[in-house]
Structures are given as structure tokens and as C-alpha cells.
Design a binder for these strands. Structure first.
Lengths: 235, 235
DNA sequence: CAATACACGTGACCC
DNA sequence: TGGGTCACGTGTATT
């Protein structure tokens, strides 16, 4: 719609789009949202009333196209609702926020999964982070813990004892040694469900435990039982 | 806005929300989008003009709140634009479609990565295959052996003994248990270099050994040493 | 001029 | 009833 079309409505006072028009005793009032007051909107005779039906058609097509556009967007939003867990009944903004979170989380996991083979490095490293795990359609709140340090007898038993003390179950563990160095990556879960703060607390506690294991001197012999093998778990 | 407020605009013809109001010679025309034609909207004196300023304030707050809402949604959409590659200059609908595609792709990759994570299945499986391994620039003739079966005490020690008997070194091992099942994937190499036929022979022998381990009854207690941890290897 | 996409204000509806 | 979301039709700009 251009300037001349604009004058079809009013030729002295600009009618802003979406302005609510109030009418009293035949005179027209429009809400000027900038000045925050009602202003008069004098109405003159329309310049060209001949293409009135054309305008009607155009408006009808326009509104219908816009409706189609909204439907497309909302359909995609519904698809996203089905794709992202725990976002079923969120409003649009919260849904998009959840999509962003999920996207970032998946991206992080994908990047980490790209580091496929576990090979010990020469730099000590301890990392503990929470993540969403899916095991056979079971949604589990899991933690991925990785540890890289010099290998010494008793280290794995200490590690195992630390996990037992924290009430953690080892879902899977990978351990590799090379040139006297050791690296292990474990996927852990809690014995019982807990709230977020407990999860965070466990995460921090695990990190501290791993640090103490690496730094303390070895006092015990090798564990009499497989120290990194998983605890059997029956649902 | 209730029924009485509605009549402020017209008391005979219902003005639908968003209907474009055209005005000619002081008389008001509204577009009836259902019937697709312009209908007259007779204007009567407004019932209560007293709360006019309140209505103005309410409308101003309302429109501003709506603007804030749109800003939040668009901010999230922009974030998504930055998060999803090749979606920088797409319109809203296409952007959301790309987000859906990307989300599904990442989810697929995550599922595949989760299959990189060793998770026991309910079907027994023994697989041995030769492959070229690279460990810190060292070209090694390696074998990847995987075993999935019911877990029972002594199984890991039997496994370890079988590897020792075959003169195999465990470069890395991953073991997981779930619901009484066990799965392990090991990357193995030979103690000394040998020719191709020996390699093939070892591969077959290992496969037989794994089969016998799975099928035989447990006769020994758990290994007195960590049975799945790697042998330390110094180059 | 078409078609298209976006922002806007607004009515309806829901706690 | 006030503060929130949503769908609507429309004005405007881009192509």
C-alpha cells in the first residue's frame, strides 16, 4: 500500500497501522499510540471508490495468506513441541527457549562423542558433568565422569570405592592405559531419583573424590575384585 | 472487552476483531471477512465515554506487553538462527523447519553415539574383526573384539585368561552391564609382530575362546586382579 | 501490479 | 480484574 492508497482512508491525519478506531456521533477517533491520546481523524470522500471490490478481494487474499503463514509457523512449533521433551505445554517463547537449550545440549554431546577413542594424555584431567541419558527408552539423569592420570596399583579400587560411597551406579565404563598413563570415561547414574540440587551436589562430590584419588598416595594393593567393571543392575 | 464494550462500536452489526474499517462521507463501512463484502456499521452514541482514558491506558499497556512478547520470541528465533548453520537469512517458517531438521539430525547422531556407548542387548553376540589401529602415531595391527552375554561371576577372569593364553594385549576395553546382561568391546594387539596367517589364526582362536567362555559354566571365583583394566603398556 | 514476510494493535480468552 | 498468551486482519517493505 503506497501513499495514494493511504489517502483513501484519511488525507490529513495519518492513520497508523493497527490503531483502534473509535467512533462517536459520526466523528472518528483514532488512538495515537505515540502521544497516548485520542485524536480526531477527519474523513474525506474517498478518491477512487471504483476499485472497492478489488480492495475487498485484495484484503481477503491478504488475510488468508497471512493466516496460512501463521498456520505454517504454528505447525512447525507443534512439531518442535513433540520433538523436545518436557516442552509439551509451554507457550511459544518458553518452547523456543527449551528448543535452544536442547539444541545446545545435543550439540555438546555430539562434539564429545566425536572424541571416540579413549587415549590417555600426558596432562592430568578430571571432568564431571551432568547430561541426559537414554538407555533403552529409559530417560535417565546421568553423569559423565572422565579421569586421566598416572596409573598406579590401587587407583581403580579407590575409584570404585568412591563411586560406591556416593551411591552411584556405573552404566558404562571405558578405561585405557598407555605408557604408564591411565584414562577412564564413565557414565554414571544415581541409585535413586533425586532433585536437581542433589544431582549438582553429587556432581561436585564426585569431582572432589576423583581429585583426592589422583593426588593421594597409594596405600592399598590392587583390588581383589574387578574395580572398574560395572555393578550389576536389575530394574 | 465484554458485550457492552462491544456495543460502543456498533450496536447492530458485530465488528469482528481486526476488521478493516473504511469510512466514506461520515458513514462507516466494515469488511465482513466471512461474507466477503462491505457492510454498513451504524454508529450510535457511546454508552460510557467516562472511562475513555482508562481504555486508552489499558490499550497502551496491552500493545506494549504484546510488543515485548513478540520481542522475546524474535530474540529466541535470532538465537536459533545463530545456532543452526545455514539458517541465517531464512524467514521464520523456513528457520523453524531447519531447526526441526537439525534437531532430528542431532538426535539421530546422539542415538548413534549412544550405540557407540556400549549397552548390552538381549541377544548374545560375539564378534572379532581385524583393523588397523593408530595409537599416538604408532601403526598397530589391532583387533576389535566384542562380546555380549549374560553376566556371571568369573566371566571376566575367564575372558582375561583367554586373552593371556593367546598372547594378546588389551589396548583399551569398555564394559557395561545392564539388567544382568554384559557387553564388552576390546581393542587388542599381539605381543609380537607376526604374518597375516598368524593374525587370521589368532582372530579365529579368539572367537572360539570367547564362545567357550560364554557357554561354559563358571568354575572359578572372580579374578583377584582387575580383569577388565588394561595391561600397562610401555612402548 | 503481483506475492511474500514481518510488525503492529487489538479482541478473546485464561488464570 | 489485571497480566499473560494467542490469533486475527491490516499497514508496510521487499522482491
Amino acid at each position: 500500500m503506497n501513499e495514494s492508497d493511504f489517502e483513501v482512508l484519511s488525507d490529513d491525519s495519518r492513520v497508523k497501522p493497527g490503531c483502534r478506531t473509535l467512533q462517536r456521533n459520526g466523528s472518528s477517533l483514532v488512538l495515537d499510540s505515540e502521544r497516548g491520546e485520542l485524536v480526531e481523524a477527519c474523513v474525506s470522500a474517498k478518491r477512487k471508490m471504483a476499485p472497492a471490490e478489488r480492495n475487498v478481494d485484495a484484503l481477503k487474499n491478504h488475510s488468508e495468506a497471512e493466516r496460512k503463514r501463521r498456520a505454517r509457523i504454528n505447525a512447525h512449533l507443534d512439531t518442535l513441541r513433540g520433538l523436545v521433551p518436557e516442552a509439551k505445554k509451554m507457550d511459544k517463547a518458553a518452547l523456543l527457549a527449551e528448543v535452544i537449550n536442547h539444541l545446545r545440549k545435543l550439540k555438546r554431546n555430539a562434539d564429545e562423542a566425536m572424541q571416540q577413542y579413549v587415549i590417555p594424555t600426558y596432562a592430568d584431567e578430571i571432568k564431571v558433568e551432568q547430561e541426559q541419558g537414554e538407555v533403552l527408552d529409559l530417560e535417565l539423569e546421568t553423569m559423565k565422569a572422565s579421569i586421566c592420570c598416572d596409573y598406579r596399583p590401587g587407583l581403580l579400587s579407590n575409584l570404585r570405592q568412591a563411586l560406591v560411597n556416593l551411591g552411584l551406579i556405573v552404566l558404562s565404563a571405558e578405561v585405557a592405559t598407555f605408557e604408564g598413563r591411565m584414562k577412564s570415561i564413565m557414565v554414571l547414574t544415581r541409585c535413586h531419583e533425586g532433585d536437581e540440587t542433589l544431582c549438582q551436589f553429587l556432581s561436585n562430590s564426585l569431582h572432589l573424590a576423583l581429585c583426592s584419588i589422583v593426588n593421594q598416595f597409594s596405600t592399598s594393593e590392587e583390588s581383589p575384585r574387578p574395580s572398574v567393571s560395572n555393578k550389576r543392575r536389575r530394574a
